[in-house]
Design a protein around this nucleic acid. Sequence first.
DNA 1: GTGTTCACG
DNA 2: ACGTACGTGAACACG
Length: 542
Amino acid sequence: MRGPLGATYLDLADVRAELGPILADEEVRKIGQNIKYDLLVLRNAGMPIAGVYFDTMVASYCLDPGRSSHSMDNMARDYLNYECVPIVNLIGKGKNQLTFDMVDAAVACEYAAEDADVTWQLYAYLKARLETQPRIAKLFAEVEMPLVSVLAQMEYNGVSLDTALLRQMAGELSEALEFLDERIYEQAGGVFNIDSPKQLAEILFDKLGLKSGRVGKAGRSTDASVLEQLSDQHPIADLVLEHRTLSKLKNTYADKLAGMINPRTNRLHASFNQTVTATGRLSSSDPNLQNIPIRTELGRKIRAAFVPAKETDCILSADYSQIELRLLADFSRDEALMAAFAADQDIHRFVASQVYDVPLAEVTNQMRARSKSVSFGVIYGQGAFGLARSTGMSPAEAKEFIEGYFARYGSIRAFLDECIAKAKETGYAETILGRRRRIRDLDSKNGGRRALAERLAVNTVIQGSAADLIKVAMLNVQRKIDTERLPVAVLLQVHDELVFELPAAEAEEHGRWIAEAMTTALELDVPLKVDVAYGPSWLSDK
DNA sequence: GTGTTCACG
DNA sequence: ACGTACGTGAACACG
């Protein structure tokens, strides 16, 4: 057939008739590069795929999650010593770029053939490498490959948004910002671009003569921590902080989200990326739905716009409680910590009572907050300086507190040391399911680099194991939805949380099995806990 | 394209 | 003396 540009192209009905049955045949194993994309494109073109077997992008990620790119071109260059024909040769670039369906079929065929050939060769190469690493091969075959289809389903589901609410919020934010603009210009004695850190620094530190703090490559920092320091010296600091908060909310969320709704489905279909992070976590993009505000009252309201499409449905969220600390307790086998989780104690209160050596009832809010900071700090490998900064303690106090913490939790110290020792010995940090991240610089003579490597060795084990856990949970949840044909749609994964759309009348019932599926995803010696909340939007109180 | 800033877990 | 908590993605300014 002839297209609008005179190019020949294939008729969709012909393609569907020819390829549809093969693609739908479970017995015909599918090998591809970034198969999630094909799953979505072909499903939307009336050709659902079964028998998803081997994704070269996902295989490469399992073998080396720290690699900067798992694109076919990049892998072909590194693994096959082959330079692929750049797609720009076919479609050009910039504003006159074509889409692939506008390319003449004969030209497209040549390109597609290279694509298939290179993917096949990558498959052979990656399969052989996987065969030398049984745990990674198992992780790939039993977790990551099945997850491809789950993520495709999530992306296909998308999420419904209350656009009127977003518009209203954007309007209110605009008004508040205009008001703030005027007051900032007043305080600054002139108009400037508040969004330009460079111009803002000139106003603050040159024109108004405030004392500058940290300096970066591009000049004096104006970030939130600096502005907070300045807030008792000049009223402009708080105004700028407020301006930053509001413009972030407006530009990144209130204005943007509605514009990304697919007019065909009336829903927002983000990407959940499986081959991006070094630790095994997913990432989300276009838009990122893993960083929707929650920490402040105002920002949190954005979540009210994440709604079910039908009035009879609801949004249900299920999140792991203290997942990383539970893993830390399990890995370190610290008896007191394990007992505290077994008894379902408020873990930060419990730790505070032990470190300060006071009865649970006498733990103050400050004691609890400090213990919470240290526990998080442990997971990230934080030192006394960092703890001091995050709690407001003096560095000496912080140092003392950390010493007290490890005096009480010697087995945690031992676990951290073991993570580092293992990584030094093997060159890898390894998660509960055998996912491996290469850790360099553990022997570096540069103290800073070595310390960073040690933090990575620890953090990767914990963060990566939590990622393994929720991936298994997602597989179990989607499997049950499919086999029992339940009216439940998985919408989002936010690292320790899954978000669903389901009939409001059945929320209790579905919440029960979802929590069960999540808590039993992996067998640990520490009980896992999942909090479930549901309501008319993602805002729903917990 | 890079740097800064800030949203999340 | 040095930097100083892990993992992400996006908007904006600037050259």
